[in-house]
Amino acid sequence: MAVLAAAAGSDAAVRTVGLAKTYRSAHGDVLAVRGLDLEVARGEFFGLLGPNGAGKSTTIGMLTTLVKPTGGSARLVGHDVVTEPVAVKRRIGVVSQNNTLDRQLTVRENLEFRGRFFGLSGRAAVRRAQELLDLFDLGGRAKAMVYELSGGQARRVMIGRALMHRPDLLFLDEPTAAIDPQTRINLWDTLRGLHEQGQTIVLTTHYMEEAETLCERVAVVDDGRLLACGTVAGLKDEVGPGTLVSVTFDGPADPVAAAVRGRAGVDRVEVRGATIRLFVRSAQNVVGDLVLAGVAVGLTVRDSATVPPSLENVFLALTGRDYRE
């Protein structure tokens, strides 16, 4: 459904073609984003997932007019980010990774002035700010200065501020980085609530769990490139090879690989030194079989792990690297 809507044309919330950014410096060029094709449908909850330095923030920067692309194009709700930046800015709300709240204003003033920047009358800004203070349970902190807020409160104020002018699209760049686990779960609830009310949301995250929990579709990016894009379930099915079983022996694992290769239910076998990795559709009995296969060639098991289907496996399958490498 989402995919169909995305194909509907210029009305897509986000459409990029070959979007690229190279930072030029005296120390050499940095290819932060190398030709990204993305489509996000209206009403979708979309995630850009990748490790730190993958180019996610640069991509969000280009989509929100803050970073100038050096190649390709990007349109938001039909408006080009380079030639129509003001039209784009009217339609987006942005929650950046840093706390960019206005330190010289109170929480309430932060919301009200943001509204007035977007053309709300004084009275309308007051009313909308109150709505959002209530929605985000910030009523008690309305008069607080920004530096008095906790990390989670500041993040909620930033989301509230981004929603002041009822943007078509809400961007969040690593919304739960450096936030404690309980606050993270609360923020997830908040974002889910917004999405249920029809808000289109694009977020970047380097937390697999966050993308899995929240996003309808995920684009996996690494090193400035798009590796895969689809629903979380679809990625697990198509790209993701199901469950990962990893066993480490006390010697080179190649003889074991020979024994299990071609076995029913095993999609892929990888050997790295003493470690063998199997991507299987069902993990049942696999560890036991590997142990026996090892014993048969005189190897003893040092360590083993079974990871159920997850985006983590998808990333591993796509890049050949552990996600946290």
Partner: peptide
């Protein structure tokens, strides 16, 4: 909702001055 999107740059400019006046008043 649609009225919001009609905000002209002049509105924005004036709102920014208003923000600075607010800060100045507080720090008189």
């Amino acid at each position: 909702m649609t009225t919001l999107k009609q905000a002209t740059p002049v509105h924005t400019f004036l709102a920014m001055l208003a923000r600075d006046v607010r800060v100045l008043r507080r720090e008189m």
